[in-house]
Design a binder for these strands. Structure first.
Length: 851
RNA sequence: GCGGACGUGGCGGAAUGGUAGACGCCGGAGACUUAAAAUCUUCUGCCCUUCGAGGCGUGCGGGUUCGAGUCCCGCCGUCCGCACCA
């Protein structure tokens, strides 16, 4: 008789079977159609969290479903194992980063296994092992040889807490993305990858990514930031010249000044002989870079005393300023100011009393004197602009550019916001950059036969900074070129380099080289990539670049690494807090602030919520992303212990659309657990023999509609809809009287739930006497004849309002429908004395009487 | 400031321009039980009700349409990304 489904026991036994039979190992030589399903690999921080569970469950459902429809599926897992937390742990706990990382991997791997993911563990990799990063070093040298790697002295973002350089992308509001410390500017010799060589291609390539979210494509587009315009020269009064870039060459006749960045060569030259200029430049550098500071920061300038000759009017001299709002990193580091049509220029002009001349008019206004403090940037017609007068903006741009090119003082040009990728990190726990610095030979690549350059194990973290710098036994080497004593590069690679090609290594991992081209090309691109939207720019852009770079050097012919991308929402939870009083920094003021409490710290009683430890009343806060700081995390492991893997997986897929946030709740997981038990009661009952040989046509139809429906939903990653359809099917099976149809439906249901709840599906499959694994079973076939209803419910409307519904045979003739509608008492009552003016009949849908 | 997404019951959310609220959660009532748990049945947008029905409902205001959650215009709100990018 019906027993309980023992999830703990079933989970373990089926996981063991899958493991031992290598059920999910992908075959490189398979003749089947291929599916590469990949979720962003985790950083081994210690334990898995609900975000991982949700991410990997989604990928798993897709992978298992694709197997069932006959694909050879590659669904691998590995570890993004280099990074700063390991070094932080080393400093705080005195444990070696490698030992810490490898222990975390063991823990997390065991946790992932308990969720029964259909992963090919034979391809597992960890980026911190020499057999991964050694190949990365080889690829780095290939790119170096191809001229895609260079070294330059540059101002870098220095994180004073983590004691490292950060990429621009890792600076958020002027603070380090990890430490939150205010970033300083420093000059260091750094390694760069020439991502800007591919700026155009990276931008254009977005157009072909049909299965990427528009949002992510747009974010990348904005990040790459292509601007078309004119780059041209001003002759300066000292005989020098200055190049500027503008997207508005049409406004040439509205210019009032030229401004250069504080670190522009002209500014630096002036500072050498003018202490006031030097002081101004210092002032500019001190300015904060946060959004709030920038918004309120005044536009400041320093008059260099130089003048610039307007290229279209030799008699016209413009003052040249050093200005705090001009960026050296963008364009040419110099601009010409058109105050009437650019807000920053207007602010600047008003402050220094410069002329403000209107050159674009949106209507009747043609007065050259521009009034007000709001620049006009909209459409219009050129005015006060000599030969440009009367043209629209685009015409005027073209005219000025062709004139500049004809006269030789400027060229039409494209400028990108994207900068080259600085990959040097002054850290230990990363891929050593395979370069040797020799006093005589300069920069010398490590010879291939000396790869991998392995990280030394014996390092100490008792002082800040990079331990590799202090490790002279490691960093002192003979120059491969001249044999003299030389020094190893002690910078390591940004961890984003590790994740820029791991998906290629998953597809093919030979021993002697990074990948086998033919094998990798069979699997790539990744068909469906799933991960958090936080990687929309950095990781995804770098991986796209790396793929292009490999293509450029002839190692891999793949246009894009990820054909399909899905960004899943976060797992959220209520927050709990009570207010505590604490003294402010002055030691006097009393500040009220929330003390966050965890879900296990509180209890609900007497209609309220209280802290268990103190009995104090607790405030329920907003539902937020699970985070340690808000203490609203739920550890997956005890949940799996209590409810089993299938219930947890089911909950992860239920209710919320996968791209939106999923609010974790106790009642939700209990509901999922109840459903698993409901399934078991059906499956268990089915083995007792399906009594009756009768057909149940309605149930047959429902079953086949469900098979077809959830296939569509899974393909679209609409797991919540697939789950709802399964609930509806189960409801109907439970209500149905015993019949052959019902028994068949239950047998089919096993396969329908197999991608989502694989353990109970295997258990039921085996109990029903089937051979082999349900994981290897084919997806049920759909009988197309059963997808169409033979009866339909028709809505009867009067003036668009629903008055009744009637059931009739599908395909009922229009005039019959109309007659039935007019004969309907509810319709008649609603029409009353009025005469129908018009009757709309939509076959198999509705009749609308307009009266 | 620029760009984007979203707004539907107490909650998560369904809905090719055609019966709004599928499915789940919470909640109510009942059955089974000595009792509880589990399970099952049933109700569950709001208002009004003479129990036949009716009215109102998808952030707000307009519009297109026989018909709008869905399309168009204008607001409001929430969230996300970028941000002195010339």
């Amino acid at each position: 008789m019906a027993s309980r489904f023992n999830a703990l026991k079933a989970d373990a036994s089926w996981q063991k079977v899958w493991d031992e039979s290598r059920t999910f190992a992908a075959r490189d030589d398979s003749p089947k159609p291929r599916s590469y399903v990949l979720e962003m690999f985790p950083y081994p921080s210690g334990r898995i969290h609900m975000g991982h569970v949700r991410n990997y469950t989604m990928g798993d459902v897709l992978a298992r479903y694709r197997r069932m429809i006959g694909h050879e599926v590659l669904h691998p897992m590995g570890w993004d194992a280099f990074g700063m937390p390991a070094e932080n742990a080393a400093m705080e706990k005195g444990v070696h980063p490698g030992a810490w990382t490898r222990a975390n991997i063991e823990t997390m791997k065991a946790q992932l296994k308990r969720l029964g993911f259909a992963l090919d563990w034979t391809r597992e990799l960890a980026t911190c092992e020499p057999d991964y990063y050694g190949h990365e070093q080889a690829l780095f040298l290939d790119l170096f040889k191809a001229g895609l790697v260079y070294r330059k002295e540059s101002a870098v973002n220095w994180d004073p807490v983590d004691m490292t350089v950060l990429a621009n992308e890792q600076v958020i509001d002027g603070r380090g993305w990890r430490s939150g410390a205010l970033v300083e500017r420093r000059k260091l010799s750094q390694w760069f990858l020439k991502i800007t060589d591919f700026a155009d291609d990276l931008l254009n390539g977005l157009g072909a990514l049909e299965h990427w979210p528009d949002k992510v494509k747009l974010m990348q587009e904005n990040w790459i930031g292509r601007s078309q315009g004119l780059t041209f020269s001003f002759k300066l009064s000292d005989g020098d010249k200055v190049d500027v870039f503008t997207t508005r060459p049409d406004t040439m006749f509205g210019s009032a000044f030229v401004a250069v960045a504080a670190d522009h060569p002209i500014a630096r030259a002036l500072a050498d002989r003018n202490p006031d200029a030097a002081a101004f430049i210092e002032l500019c550098k001190r300015g904060g870079t946060t959004a709030a500071e920038l918004e309120t920061q005044e536009k400041l300038g320093f008059d260099t005393g130089l003048t610039a000759t307007h290229p279209l009017d030799p008699a016209w001299q413009l003052p040249v300023y050093i200005a705090n709002f001009v960026l050296m990193e963008y364009g040419t580091g110099a601009v010409f100011g058109v105050p009437a049509h650019d807000q920053r220029d207007l602010d600047f002009a008003r402050k220094y009393g410069l002329p403000v001349k209107r050159v674009v008019s949106e209507g009747e206004i043609e007065d050259p004197v521009f009034v007000g403090n709001e620049a006009y940037g909209g459409p219009g017609v050129l005015v006060n602009s000599h030969f440009l007068d009367g043209m629209d903006i685009e015409d005027a741009k073209r005219t000025v550019i062709s004139r500049a090119e004809g006269e030789g003082w400027g060229t039409g040009s494209t400028v990108f916001r994207l900068r080259d990728w600085g990959v040097s990190r002054q850290r230990y726990w990363g891929t050593p950059i395979p370069i040797i610095h020799c006093d005589t030979c300069g920069v010398v690549p490590v010879p291939r036969d000396q790869l991998p350059v392995v990280l030394p194990e014996d390092v100490s973290f008792d002082v800040p900074g990079n331990p590799l710098d202090r490790h002279t036994a490691w960093n002192t080497v003979d120059c491969p070129s001249c044999g003299a004593t030389a020094r190893r590069e002690t910078d390591t690679l940004d961890t984003f380099v590790n994740s820029s090609w791991y998906f290629i290594r998953f597809a093919s991992q030979p021993e002697g080289k990074p990948f086998d081209r033919a094998v990798a090309e069979q699997w790539l691109p990744v068909g469906q990539y799933i991960g958090g939207v936080e990687h929309a720019i950095l990781h995804l852009l770098y991986a796209r670049f790396w793929t292009r770079a490999l293509k450029h050097i002839g190692q891999l012919d793949v246009a894009e690494p990820f054909a399909g991308l899905f960004t899943q929402g976060m797992v959220t939870h209520e927050t709990y807090s009570r207010t505590i009083e604490t003294l402010g920094t002055d030691g006097v003021d009393v500040i009220h602030k929330p003390l966050w409490l965890g879900p296990d710290d509180i209890e609900r009683r007497d209609g309220g919520v209280f802290e268990i430890a103190t009995g104090e009343a607790v405030t329920i806060g907003r539902v937020e992303k699970m985070s340690k700081s808000k203490k609203n995390t739920v550890d997956p492991e005890p949940i799996v212990d209590q409810y089993g893997a299938d219930a947890v997986r089911w909950f992860m897929l239920s209710d919320s659309p996968p791209e939106r946030d999923l609010p974790w709740s106790e009642s939700g997981i209990e509901g999922s657990w109840r459903f698993v038990q409901r399934l078991w009661r059906l499956f268990d009952g089915a083995t007792e023999g399906g009594e009756g040989a009768s057909k149940d046509a309605a149930l047959d139809r429902k079953l086949h509609q469900t098979i077809a429906g959830i296939a569509v939903d899974i393909d679209a990653l609409s797991f919540n809809k697939a789950v709802a359809k399964l609930y509806a099917l189960v409801n109907e099976i439970e209500r149905a009287a015993p019949s052959a149809s019902r028994s068949a439906a239950i047998a089919t249901l096993m396969r329908l739930v197999a991608p989502m709840a694989p353990h109970i599906a295997e258990e039921a499959w085996a109990a029903a006497g089937n051979d082999g694994l349900i994981a290897d079973a084919p997806w049920p076939e759909v009988d197309p004849a059963l997808l169409v209803e033979d009866e339909v419910t028709i809505a009867l409307q009067v003036n668009g309002k629903l008055r009744d519904t009637v059931t009739m045979a599908k395909g009922t003739a229009k005039d019959v429908m109309e007659a039935l509608a007019l004969a309907n008492p509810n319709v008649q009552r609603s029409i009353g004395d009025a005469t129908p003016k018009k009757i709309i009949v939509v076959p198999d849908r509705l009749v609308n009487v307009v009266a």
